[in-house]
């Protein structure tokens, strides 16, 4: 069996006019981009919107892709930006949800809905708690711990220093654990706690 065609080769073929190469590219990354958007946005419908925005942006901007970074790094950056855009749009109160929202099903109001019937209760806790992690930390956390992306690559995706990425991942993990109701096994001793007080 032939090895899969590298992304960069598919990009090159698309830029030469082969629409099929673009189709293979987006089909190859659809699952990964969807899961990124789903965990960052926390809502299946929003995630679907963000994925579609991502691929349309990729289509539009592909000519600007210079190959300085790996295609996957570049595409993740486009996807993260699509998530940020959608998240901002949601915060601004969307155009068509102004009136009569009480008539809409819960899932259309952005209320978290279970997205995977087989998820265990513990997993659901983690997924639900992820929504309470501040967005910047959440994005870094999802890329690091759910996508197993190296810190160096995350730094390129987010265009921030690698130290910032590591710090965000750590802060994100701590925030997630607290959102899940996990407490440290080491209770804070009064004598120790007073050390940090001014």
């Amino acid at each position: 069996m032939d090895p899969p065609e590298p992304d960069e080769e598919l990009v090159r073929r698309f830029l030469l006019g082969e629409t099929d190469a673009f189709e293979r590219l987006v089909e190859r990354h659809r699952q990964r981009v969807y899961n990124l958007c789903l965990r960052v946005l926390g809502d299946p419908e929003d995630a679907a919107d963000a994925v579609q925005d991502t691929f349309l942006s990729v289509l539009t901007k592909l000519r600007q892709f210079r190959g300085d970074a790996a295609f996957t790094t570049w595409m993740h950056r486009v996807a993260v930006n699509a998530c940020y855009d959608l998240s901002r749009k949601r915060r601004r109160q969307p155009l068509l949800r102004l009136a009569g929202d009480q008539d809409l099903p819960e899932s259309e109001l952005g209320t978290p809905v279970p997205d995977h019937a087989e998820e265990s209760a513990g997993t659901h806790d983690a997924v639900a708690a992820l929504r309470e992690v501040p967005e910047e930390f959440r994005v870094a956390l999802v890329l690091a711990d759910l996508h197993d992306m190296a810190y160096e690559q995350i730094a390129k995706v987010l265009d921030v220093p690698i130290g910032t990425v590591k710090s965000r991942v750590h802060r994100g993990r701590v925030a997630l654990a607290r959102a899940m109701g996990i407490t440290s096994r080491e209770p804070e001793a009064p004598a120790r706690a007073s050390e940090d007080q001014p």
Binding site: E23, Q52, F55, H116, E119, R173
Partner: peptide, 25 residues
């Protein structure tokens, strides 16, 4: 706390993506 969170995320499964997500693009 970070160790507990990392372990919890390790058990989160991948969710199947709807098949028509790339259709528009």
């Amino acid at each position: 706390l970070a160790r507990a969170a990392r372990a919890a995320l390790a058990s989160v499964p991948e969710t199947p993506a709807p098949s028509d997500l790339s259709a528009a693009a």
